[in-house]
Simulated scan of single mutants.
Amino acid sequence: MKNLDPQDAAVLITKQKLASLLSISQRQVNRLMDDGCPTIRIGNAPRFDYEAVREWLIKRENEEDAHVDSRDWLKVKDIAEQLQVKRDKVLYWIATGKLQAVNLNTGEPSRRAMYRVKRSALDAFLLTKQVLVPPKLPRRKKRPAVTRRYE
């Protein structure tokens, strides 16, 4: 947290204003604060320097990009195409917990879920669905038909 200068008071914004500027919910602003977003407390109320928050978000995004390879994450649509099943089937697997996924849209309950599945989670799921085909057994030879003659 910073110490408050009287000149900075004019550029500080509230949590509600920051949420509207970033197009996120106030709950997400709370999460950003927990993650280390630059905050100034005036009494008990948090205030934000918008430029400092923007710089922090850009820096944070660049750090995350360095650690995460986007090819490791798959969209539901891509999985459905790859496995040749309907998108609803993939969503069913996610909803039942059979396929592990991350919901990127957790902020507002009114918006549709946006899942991403890690490639390793998909591989583990496919291993559970693997069907082992038993080896082909040799066919039994037919016995020659025995005909009996009664005299």
Rank of each mutant, 00 (worst) to 15 (best):
A80L: 11
A80D: 03
E61T: 15
Q82A: 07
P38T: 05
G97V: 04
G97W: 07
D34A: 14
R31H: 13
K59H: 03
R54A: 12
T96K: 09
T39P: 02
P38A: 15
W56K: 14
D69W: 02
K98H: 10
E63A: 14
E55D: 12
R54M: 09
G36A: 08
V85S: 01
H67C: 05
A45P: 00
G43H: 03
E51C: 05
L83I: 03
K98A: 14
K77H: 11
D35Q: 06
M33G: 04
K86N: 12
R31Q: 15
D65Q: 14
I94T: 09
G36I: 04
Q82I: 14
S70L: 15
G36W: 06
A95N: 10
P38I: 03
L83K: 00
M33K: 01
V68Y: 01
V85L: 11
D78V: 15
D78R: 08
R31M: 14
R27I: 07
W73C: 04
S70M: 09
I24Q: 10
W93T: 06
R112M: 15
A52M: 10
Q26Y: 03
A45R: 11
L104P: 01
D35G: 08
R71W: 06
V68E: 10
R47Y: 12
Y92F: 05
V53Q: 10
P46C: 07
Y92N: 09
Y92C: 01
R87T: 11
V85K: 11
V29N: 02
D78T: 15
R71V: 07
E51I: 09
S25T: 13
V85T: 01
G107Q: 12
F48I: 01
G43R: 02
E63Q: 05
K86H: 08
Q82S: 06
C37L: 03
A101T: 01
D34I: 11
Q82N: 08
Y50N: 07
V68C: 04
I79R: 03
W56E: 04
A45V: 12
P38K: 09
D34Y: 04
D78A: 08
E64N: 08
P46A: 08
W73K: 01
V68H: 09
R87F: 09
S25E: 07
L57R: 03
N62H: 11
E55G: 08
D34P: 00
E64P: 04
R71P: 02
P46G: 04
K75R: 13
R111N: 06
N62V: 10
K77L: 13
N105S: 13
I40D: 04
N105G: 05
E51K: 15
S25K: 15
E55L: 14
K59W: 05
M33R: 13
Q100K: 15
R112G: 02
R71H: 08
Q84D: 07
I79N: 06
N62S: 10
D65P: 02
Q26F: 10
D69Y: 11
K77T: 08
T96I: 13
P109S: 14
I40H: 07
R41D: 00
E51F: 02
M33V: 14
A52Q: 06
M33W: 02
L74P: 00
D88L: 11
L32P: 04
N44D: 04
A101Q: 08
V90D: 13
S110C: 04
T96V: 14
T96P: 02
K98V: 08
I79C: 03
E51Q: 15
S110H: 09
Q100C: 06
Q82V: 11
V53C: 00
I42L: 07
